[in-house]
Amino acid sequence: MKNRRVNRKWELITSIVLGTLLIWFAMFYPLPYYIESPGGAMDVRSVLQVNGEVDQEDGSYNFTYVTVQQATAIKLLFAAFDSHSDIQSEQEMTGGADSEEYYRIAQFYMETSQNLAKYQGLTLAGKEVTMDFFGVYVLGLAEDSTFQGILNIADTVVSINGKTFESSAELIDYVSSLELGSDVTVGYVSSGIEQTADGKIIKLENGKNGIGISLVDHTEVTSDVPIDFQTGNIGGPSAGLMFTLSIYTQLADPTLRSGRVIAGTGTIEQDGSVGDIGGADKKVLSAAKSGATVFFVPNNPVDEAVLKENPNAKTNYEEALEVVEEEGLSIELVPVTTVQDAIDYLEKTKSD
Rank of each mutant, 00 (worst) to 15 (best):
L285F: 02
A97C: 04
E325P: 00
L245I: 08
A252V: 04
S238T: 10
N3L: 13
F81N: 07
V157M: 01
D224Q: 14
L18M: 14
G52T: 07
N209M: 06
N62E: 15
V157K: 01
F147S: 11
D82N: 15
A79Q: 05
A169R: 14
G52N: 08
D173R: 12
D281Q: 13
E326R: 15
T293N: 11
T196V: 12
S15N: 04
N300L: 13
V306K: 10
L215K: 01
V50H: 02
E194D: 03
D341Y: 08
K200G: 07
P226G: 14
F25G: 09
V189C: 01
T349G: 03
F63M: 11
D132K: 15
V323I: 14
G266M: 03
L22E: 03
A313Q: 09
G207V: 08
N3T: 11
G272D: 05
T67M: 12
V17S: 07
S60W: 01
T112P: 00
Q88Y: 14
L22V: 11
A239C: 09
K75R: 15
T67P: 00
L245F: 04
R5I: 10
V261P: 00
V284S: 07
G39Q: 04
V157E: 01
A342L: 02
N7S: 12
V189S: 07
Q56T: 15
D341L: 02
V274N: 01
E170H: 09
Y29I: 01
T94F: 07
G126M: 09
P254R: 13
L241R: 02
I150A: 08
N316F: 08
L329N: 08
F81Q: 06
M1C: 00
L76D: 12
L245Y: 06
D217Q: 08
G272L: 06
T72Q: 07
L116C: 05
L116V: 03
F81E: 04
E170G: 07
E318T: 09
E325V: 12
L241V: 03
F63N: 10
L285P: 06
I23N: 05
E347C: 00
T219S: 13
V221N: 10
E347F: 00
N62A: 13
L151K: 05
D173N: 15
Y174C: 11
E90L: 10
V54M: 10
L122W: 03
N115T: 00
G232T: 11
L178V: 11
F134E: 08
S167W: 09
N51T: 03
Q120C: 09
Q56W: 01
P30A: 09
H84F: 06
E332S: 11
